[in-house]
Design a protein around this nucleic acid. Structure first.
Lengths: 339, 339
DNA sequence: GCCAACTCCGACATCGATGTCAATGCGAAG
DNA sequence: CTTCGCATTGACATCGATGTCGGAGTTGGC
């Protein structure tokens, strides 16, 4: 229970002024290398770490980055968190996780209060709330740097980081077509999500490019949840006139289709190929394991942190509306096979 | 981009001193009801929210609670987070999530720095790191209130919140026995975890109480991961002389067993019953859905927050070594059936 | 040899709240 | 009517850092 080491302690021990220690800690120019090294040595010796509150108070910067979710229970959220945390540590930031329940009681007020209390250095928005304009407007108005993940809609001054959902969906569809499938069903995500729309478009275009028609009954609505995937599977697989492959817009729904097939004793991939999207952890816990598209969520998140932690980016007005695309990977596993 | 409302603004607008506003905000005694009401009205009008940094700096209290994980990617972590966040909001706290990688580079140093920088009001520890004594010692030494989830090992001054893992495992085993199973295998978790040990003990005792012997080859090691569950399943199910039921110490491993069975075309629950523990989201995404024990993780977490946010609990030395048990629920689904 | 410009460093004010303590006012007790 | 005690309030210092600014020492160009 020793009292924490303050900047004064370091200054005294090093024989310099607190301000100089501050300069060293912030890697400012105009400090002689000899002094810098000496101070750094003392800092290490004493295990000094600047108090984030004092720092924030005086500099009106913040060392906290907000990670806002709608549904923190998905595997997606966990991946994003992991990537963000690792990178935060690297930059000396910390992650504050908040759930934004759009249907809750005055969610914007809650956000507003959080912002005022914490003065976050930046905020990472994940789907679906990254496309909620009331929220992004609020953030903009407060001048808080924002990075949106998995959405390519720029709109506000936020940066966006995403994969090429359209092309990835085309690749996946082509994979099925190459395997000989022509009767392919698609389970949509929430189409108002930017990524979901692109995945659907990719599927449609791949089909038309191959000269294959799309049966309307085989394009089922879904909301990215397991349940909706199962419902879609039930709708698609209930008649004898069924497709030979199903492409679900994410892995959880693909799992739902898998279960729906299992109930009907439809062998996968023998009688039906099922593919997903995301490479969520559960895609490997299914039987058979899912063919899917690996979306490097942790990477997306760490890039987001890099952007937010960049002092240049924190300057008001000075925010180029960046749009960053990171590569995806096709992961072939055993849930897809020849038609 | 308006400048934030400060306590001075409120004071000026209400015609009182900042200190009085502070008193109102902190619900201190000795403020006339009329003044209190008036100030509160002004606060609401201006949408004032005290700056957490300034508050923390001057009071050397903190409005941040740390949530420390080893593996934030599990469904378990997500549930805990959700419960903790909801309750934090209620108390006006915020959650800082940190990953503690025990095998990383100087993890304790990292924690140390975080503590010094953020002066957390309290920390929630989840398995497995809640049983890492180097970490709890560090926290103790710093005088930071700690609550451990899902561990009943008190040891330090931390409070512990958990379900009765032992009894729950007995219940589950009895469920299988009642169904007529006598050849029951068990897949262990990491036995050094408190809960894992209790679950094993519960299984063993239920078996002996029923007068059933335990075959050593049918008690397989595992580490709570899907892979280890699959490996255990392979070991247990590879011969013809196999059990009629498998009880895995968590749902992920149960899923592994399920996949192992599916590969061998062993029908579940027809030829083999498989049960899990935790009621993780994935337990419903399997086919068949898992019979399991519901562990109310979100509830555990919110109780933890209640404890940490309690001003009384934050006083040094004044920490009764509380141990709180919350109820669990047996969830019968379709993965278990008569022998 | 002089002045400008620049480097390096510290004194001091400041961020927005709370802790301390003293001043005020009021009612009750003597 | 005085006095004591308590409820109520505000002035001021303080938390631990950084922003501002100015001073001392160095360099360099003419």
């Amino acid at each position: 229970m020793m009292p924490p080491v303050t900047i004064k302690d370091v200054a005294r021990a090093a024989g310099v002024s607190p301000k100089t220690v501050s300069r060293v800690m912030n890697a400012e120019a105009h400090v002689r290398p000899a002094v810098r090294d000496h101070v750094l040595r003392v800092v290490a010796e004493l295990g000094y770490r600047p108090n984030a509150y004092a720092r924030s108070l005086s500099s009106s910067r913040s060392y906290l980055i907000g990670l806002f979710f709608d549904d923190p229970a998905s595997g997606y959220a966990a991946e994003v968190q992991l990537g963000a945390m690792a990178r935060c540590r690297h930059h000396g930031y910390h992650l504050v996780v908040e759930r934004i329940d759009r249907d809750g009681l005055e969610p914007l007020d809650e956000v507003s209060r959080t912002l005022q209390a914490l003065q976050l250095a930046g905020v990472i928005l994940t789907p679906p709330i990254c496309d909620w304009s009331d929220l992004t407007d609020l953030l903009d108005q407060r001048g808080i740097p924002v990075v949106k993940l998995n959405s390519s809609r720029t709109g506000s001054s936020a940066a966006v980081i995403h994969i090429d959902d359209y092309q990835a969906a085309r690749d996946m569809t082509d994979h099925l077509i190459t395997l000989g499938h022509r009767d392919i069903a698609f389970v949509q995500g929430i189409v108002s999500h930017d990524a979901a729309g692109k995945r659907l478009a990719g599927f449609c275009d791949a089909m038309s490019c191959a000269g294959i028609g799309i049966r309307e009954a085989w394009v089922q609505a879904g909301d990215f949840s397991f349940r909706s995937g199962m419902a879609a599977g039930d709708a698609i697989l209930s008649t004898n006139d069924r497709p030979s492959a199903v492409f679900a817009a994410n892995d959880e729904m693909a799992l739902g289709v898998l279960v729906s097939a299992a109930r009907r004793n439809i062998a996968v991939p023998g009688a039906l190929s099922v593919v997903g999207f995301d490479d969520a952890p559960i895609s490997r816990m299914a039987w058979p394991q899912l063919t899917t598209i690996r979306q490097p969520n942790a990477l997306l998140a760490s890039v987001a942190i890099d952007i937010l932690a960049d002092p240049l980016y924190q300057q008001v007005g000075d925010r180029p509306a960046r749009s960053i695309q990171v590569p995806y990977t096709f992961i072939g596993r055993s849930s897809s096979g020849p038609a």
